[in-house]
Design a protein around this nucleic acid. Structure first.
Lengths: 145, 145
DNA sequence: CGAATCCCTACAGGATGAGTCGTGTTTGGG
DNA sequence: CCCAAACACGACTCATCCTGTAGGGATTCG
């Protein structure tokens, strides 16, 4: 499947944007400081997120990013696939699975498919709005900013 | 999660053993040829599988491997964890998730936990006996050996 | 005895993940 | 009007790890 730090950071960042939805744009630097994410690395992630149409960029001073849709309309799956590529191709079902007809080595591949589907379901069910809720509760409890 | 070729090959190999359960031991070379898996690489996988107690080795001429339990008593999860290590630590929930109390960056981590659980459920539900069934049907259809 | 087979360790090479750097472009504000 | 803040893009490094190979040793059957 290949879930890397990109997904981790990217999700944290988009949750942060969801928390600030409706207000002005939030700069990458701000998020990187607040959530302890390497700044230049985060920048790259935002490029991918923007290209996937999930966030909108505002360049120049006082610029930043905001979600381009309502947080309820963006799922974890959207974020993950924007950053890592399509889920299907990332579990184990590559060449060998398609060589099915020949070497018949694919009773195994049915398991990977099921696994991918299960993962996809979890990700598709969870929206940023939902996570923003939990996140705000957490932030409030730890320190009132 | 980190699902690599080890799991792919390992599962194919153990399914093969499940198909031959009750008969004599099957050599690594035989499986490597039948399923087109690099021989020396497969050897290594069997070492891990043996250490995990999933297979039993018979050394010497006419030796080989057999499942040490009934195929219905071995799940895909057993095989995967024997080869890749515990599932929990492999999705995304490492340090950051435990630093929860401090930087409050873990609304995200709840998603990874759910994902891991979903994956684990799929793997834990599927037994080698089940897969051996499908595999035999496939092998029969492609060529009657 | 000898061939087959498993057992163990080490190692190589390539991919990729994680993160940095330099530079360019846009834009709001003093 | 110009500068600083901010995004945009691509190249690049560094380490890890996946994939697979190699060589030798230990067992066991015929």
């Amino acid at each position: 499947m290949r879930l890397t730090a990109k997904s981790e950071y990217g999700l944290i960042a988009t949750i942060d944007l969801a928390c600030n939805f409706g207000l002005g744009p939030v700069s990458a630097r701000e998020i990187s400081e607040r959530r302890e994410i390497p700044a230049r690395f985060l920048e790259q992630l935002f490029v991918s997120l923007r290209r996937a149409g999930l966030v909108t960029a505002q360049r120049g001073a006082r610029g930043g990013f905001k979600l381009s849709r309502d947080p309820e309309q963006i799922t974890v799956l959207d974020v993950v696939e924007a950053l890592e590529g399509p889920l299907e191709t990332s579990v184990c079902d590559h060449e060998r699975a398609s060589g099915c007809g020949r070497s018949a080595s694919c009773a195994a591949s049915s398991v990977w498919s099921k696994a991918t589907r299960a993962l996809r379901d979890v990700f598709a069910e969870t929206t940023l709005a939902e996570l923003a809720g939990t996140q705000e509760a957490m932030d409030d409890r730890t320190s009132v900013v």
